[in-house]
């Protein structure tokens, strides 16, 4: 048998990695792959249905939908990946500390998270972007603010249960210091559920970015962005012009789907209980393996 774990060979994993690979290709080779400029309007070619010249048709200003969908991969993934990375880098150590040390500071931070998360995430995001100014980087900053509590809470919850586990007591008996226990023992065990959350959060960030742009609280025209493109076709949709909104929407679906699938794959891959079960069922029925004595 090959050394590739079973969970990496499931159809879900294959589709997930294929979509990821495709997106990386689109990001790297957007200028080569797109037949037109993503921002150049052509008033003569307004609202043309999909054809050989314009595979996905054109929008009301005559911009090529196909080229814009390709270029938007850059913007959408950039915002999502950067914001989740920032949230991860801040949230994980923060969660580790507030989980390990029970004190006033920890509970204050938790209360602050409670307040932030009392707001519906989309509503708060919308308000923050509106207040900070509608720019690409502000959208990323806002998403980072929204996702930081998610990671911090997740890590904290893990740490809270992990720190009561006997292996932490065993480490202390071996003379391990707080820092060693936090970073040597707890972080590694707590990080894996966070990895799953990273993938899911990137998907959520893509949806949020698109949603914000859709209502006009995100990036502005003519920047190629999927949500904005769906929005620009919304008025014509009722009149039967479907291609302007359909294709960028499909791009969102596949992009989010990709990260959801990868999240599932990571979960399966890193779940030690699954591996343990597989091993124990195979050894339990073999007699005499109890010890080599």
């Amino acid at each position: 048998m090959s050394r590739i774990p079973h969970s990496l060979r499931s159809p879900a994993a294959v589709i997930g990695f294929a979509l990821l690979f495709l997106q990386i290709l689109l990001i790297l080779f957007a200028p080569l792959l797109s037949p037109y400029s993503p921002v150049e309007a052509d008033a003569l070619a307004s609202l043309q249905p999909p054809s050989a010249a314009h595979w996905f048709g054109t929008d009301i200003t005559g911009m090529d939908v196909f080229s814009r969908v390709i270029y938007a991969t850059r913007i959408n993934l950039l915002i999502s990946v950067v914001s989740v990375a920032v949230a991860f880098l801040i949230g994980v150590p923060l969660g580790l500390f507030i989980g390990y040390y029970k004190g006033i500071v920890s509970s204050l931070v938790m209360r602050l998270f409670d307040f932030i998360q009392a707001f519906p995430i989309f509503v708060l995001g919308m308000a923050l972007v509106a207040v900070m100014g509608q720019e690409i980087w502000n959208v990323a900053i806002v998403l980072a603010i929204l996702f930081t509590p998610v990671f911090a809470r997740l890590i904290r919850a893990e740490v809270l249960s992990l720190r009561e586990r006997p292996f932490v007591a065993a480490a202390r008996c071996s003379g391990a210091s707080d820092l060693h226990i936090m970073f040597g023992h707890l972080l590694l065990n707590a990080l894996l559920p966070a990895m799953v959350q990273v993938s899911i959060s990137i998907g959520m960030a893509i949806l949020l970015t698109a949603g914000l742009s859709f209502i006009g609280a995100g990036v502005r025209m003519p920047v190629p962005e999927w949500g904005l493109m769906v929005s620009s076709g919304a008025q014509q949709m009722i009149l039967g012009v479907w291609w302007v909104s359909l294709f960028p929407g499909l791009a969102i679906v596949f992009s989010v789907l990709c990260f959801a699938l990868l999240g599932d794959v990571i979960r399966d891959l890193l779940d030690p209980t699954k591996t343990r079960r597989a091993v124990s069922t195979s050894t339990d029925i073999i007699p005499g393996i109890g010890g080599p004595l």
């Binding site: 292996f167 480490a171 003379g175």
Partner: peptide, 21 residues
Amino acid sequence: RPLRRRIQMVFQEPYVALNPR
């Protein structure tokens, strides 16, 4: 801490007393 070398403990539940990773 220096005394921990001389006083050690073998924990009860074998699986949970070992860091699984």
